[in-house]
Design a protein around this nucleic acid. Structure first.
Lengths: 214, 214
DNA sequence: TTTTTAGAATACAAATTTGTAATATCCACG
DNA sequence: CGTGGATATTACAAATTTGTATTCTAAAAA
């Protein structure tokens, strides 16, 4: 279960969030900036909800501090709906900015967006028995790890980015050899594709017949 | 320059956005769903701004349609600030949802979040002369491409994810060998790190002295 | 049917990557 | 100073990846 750190001095609100997320996420709570710093390492979390106004400091400063050492998704959660606050929050590295009062449903939806593994995000591809996480270099078919070489990964990326489409050769070549293809003959692509197919070993039409005449 | 497709039937607004983005992004405009479908291939864009209410259909349906074939970032741009619309927009695969009226500054900030390459995003690391894009498998040092092997990439990922910190061996081992390390002796890690260092060839303290005793 | 052509499959050598071992270096501690 | 422990470096062989050549197959054209 993914872990969320709620840094929010309004205990009612904080508890409400934790309760609302109870089934989906494992929440930890800090009621002040200092206690957040003392008790938690943001790196241990998959997402941080961060308020701005605290007795003991400014959440925006803490945002900056976090961003110096981590790129954990951060959603600012605040009553300040001043344009400038939103803009600077996002520019300082926040991933989203929600102004109070907000609905827990909407908050949940926005949290889900940050944590999505549903294939709607750029780097995760999900289809049938396949699960590819390009950013983690994790390629699964029915839970089984596919060990792909670098070119295979690049080809696969090009194919999944164009799911349902016929990808022509030059596209695949561009993706896999990025400009260094002058030194290689086109037939290498065929072989590379062939090897990729063998590894993923499917008759999945999308992947098995991935390109057409250039 | 990154390309944005604005699908919005309010021409004033659409033009306003294009104008506001003029210096940063290259915008194309569609004033109806049909013209968007006819004239553009969303795949050619880095981001889509999508309204919901059109004469000729529902933006939400088009969102779903796009998501069947592409994971291009999509920001819904709409007067509907009904909770349920927001929730379902995000669930259907939108990356953000902005309700009209909105400030162009805020819109810009939210667009920038989606397109950020500033190292605040999970998969891009930027520091000094280094630029690593893990999701694209692109590793640069002063514009020069670093050709990293699979384990090197994984180790680097572990190190950049923990920038500024000392990473202990077991962490690196977990990241690079993901559970298959029983068959390998620990010294392999040392050698792998060594090779990585040689490739990135630096005395950058962060990277050159990356781990401590387990 | 035969021919032609594009693509698939196999084989093999060159290049790269990877694990292990052997050796060298560094540094804290006595 | 040395010695011991830890890390660094180098070397080498095994495994993997990759490019090219060759053969095979299938389907369209003649």
């Amino acid at each position: 279960m993914k872990r969320i750190l709620i840094i929010e001095d309004d205990k009612k609100l904080s508890d409400g969030i934790r309760l609302a997320f109870h089934n989906e996420y494992s929440c930890s709570q800090a009621y002040s900036l200092q206690s957040a710093k003392d008790s938690f390492d943001v790196r241990q979390f998959d997402l941080v909800l961060l308020d701005i106004n605290f007795q003991d400091g400014n959440g925006m400063d803490y945002l900056t501090e976090i961003r110096r050492e981590s790129s954990v998704p951060i959603i600012m959660l605040t009553a300040n709906n001043m344009e400038m606050d939103i803009v600077s929050g996002l520019e300082l590295g926040a991933n989203d900015y929600i102004t109070k009062p907000f609905s827990l449903m909407v908050l949940r939806a926005r949290v889900n967006v940050q944590l999505r593994e549903d294939g709607h995000s750029k780097d995760i591809f999900k289809d049938g028995d396949f699960y590819f996480d390009f950013s983690k270099m994790e390629f699964l078919h029915k839970e089984k790890i596919l060990d792909l070489s670098k070119t295979e990964q690049r080809l696969l990326r090009c194919l999944t980015d164009n799911k349902g489409r016929v990808v022509n050769r030059s596209q695949l070549i561009d993706e896999a050899w990025q400009g260094e293809f002058e030194f290689v003959e086109e037939h290498a692509l065929i072989v590379a594709i062939n090897r990729l197919r063998k590894k993923i070993d499917v008759d999945n039409q999308d992947l098995a017949n991935p390109y057409a005449l250039a």
